[in-house]
Design a binder for these strands. Structure first.
Lengths: 248, 248
DNA sequence: TATTGGCATTGACCTCAATCAATTTTTTTT
DNA sequence: AAAAAAAATTGATTGAGGTCAATGCCAATA
């Protein structure tokens, strides 16, 4: 198992992950598709997956156009995916927090259609897809989990797509906050009120399809109305009911 | 094998499909995920799938909220999927032509997140998902095909999502036309220039996230510029290069 | 043939958010 | 700590496209 050690890395916890990256020890196993596998299958999964990191902020985990052979899960840190359209503009297509899978856009495609970029110091689990497919043939449960991940992704993409046009910037922002709150709380606990944003507001604006200026103004408005406390690299949730009301 | 026979149905071709709906005889088998299966597996697939129809225009094939147990493929006719958002607005999320799979949004979800509605007289192939999963365990090829369908769907959804915002109505419309031309030509031949639209322009506008009026104006503009000949229920393609140029 | 209803089209108007431009704030580098 | 770079904010302006309202066009039914 090879591990790249970033020059500035002095983090013991990260080194621990590198020393033993078995699923059994993984911090995000409760969120993983390996959920419920027996010891033999878990062993097989261990052999087709490996921990990689640390990726520094801005570092690419895979590139658009790479040939597809793995899917990924975030172990720690955070990741964004973005695609470059024909006219050179980049579009952020997703943000991924610990325990979430990414890179599935490449399945069945000739080439991966997006870049994956670390947003902070990040460790990921790389899961080789061909062996995973084989293992799925022997493990109905794993196969089912994998299908579920894909189905959810499709459902979510369509939902995003739906909120595409005909939706006020305010509503889009509120939905984004609502969704992020749910995801972070499922990781850190439902009482969390203070949210740190791993991604820049520029990225969020791009993801939501609004100008950074519009996002800024919208957040200020939500702040002035007392729903959130807007901060430089995060926000405090003051009135989730109000946010939900605007999110619709 | 049960077959519903619509009251007005006098179409012999359709009756033929009903009499023997084995995959072997299916008109769209060259586009199906069964591609390349051996006789034994094809037989198994036959037993977990069945032809259903005819659905009349406007008739629902499945409903939002139904519990998920099948995916579908269009055999003849055309289908749209649409979701109703919390605020009561409906959003068209996809159009499906013969040979294309739909209903995969429900995979791994508690409930199907959209309606599927026939756009004209339509026959579909209903594929029971649980048995399909099982069969995939025995057939790596089938499993691979199914993953590919899902991966493509994800990729496509994200692409749609991407083009949702920061994109001029003109470009969105051009992309839609370009995509439709490709799909119809893969069905009917690459020389086709005259395209009948199975869906209303209202549906198209909704799908693209623009007002029907905007779609109308945009099509008129493309018509005036000589790229297409805009018609009530279709269009003639005059200059595909120009359309591609605008589509980007 | 007249009538009804559903789309599609067209014009007038107005709103929201993109863009441009200028600071200010935060983060990184020296 | 100072300087430089990057990100975020704010204001002013503008334009794409949504909304409203009226009209035209078929196709289906009487």
């Amino acid at each position: 198992m090879q591990v790249r050690q970033g020059k500035g890395e002095k983090n013991n916890k990260l080194r621990l992950v590198a020393q033993d990256d078995s699923c059994d020890k993984c911090a995000t196993k409760r969120l993983c598709i390996t959920q419920g596998l027996d010891a033999e299958q878990l062993g097989a999964f261990d052999r087709l997956s490996r921990t990689r990191g640390p990726f520094r902020p801005g570092e690419r985990i895979f590139r658009m156009g790479d040939s597809f052979h793995s899917i990924y899960a975030v172990q720690s840190g955070a990741v964004k995916t973005e695609a470059v359209s024909d006219d050179g503009r980049t579009q952020v297509t997703g943000f991924y927090l610990p325990g979430e899978q990414f890179g599935v856009e490449g399945i069945g495609q000739a080439a991966i259609p997006c870049d994956a970029i670390a947003l902070k110091n990040t460790w990921v689990c790389e899961i080789a897809f061909k062996p995973l497919e084989e293992l799925c043939g022997r493990s109905p449960l794993l196969q089912h989990h994998l299908f579920s991940v894909l189905g959810e992704k499709i459902c979510n993409s369509e939902y995003q797509f739906m909120m595409g046009r005909n939706m006020r910037a305010e509503r889009r922002v509120a939905r984004f906050l609502k969704c992020l709150v749910l995801r972070i709380r499922s990781l850190e606990g439902s009482e969390v009120r203070q949210f740190h944003l791993p991604m820049s507001k520029e990225d969020i604006a791009n993801y939501l399809g609004v100008a950074p200026e519009t996002l800024s103004r919208t957040l200020r408005k939500l702040d002035e109305e007392g729903m959130i406390r807007n901060e430089a690299k995060g926000f405090e949730l003051l009135d989730i009911e109000a946010v939900n009301r605007i999110a619709g």
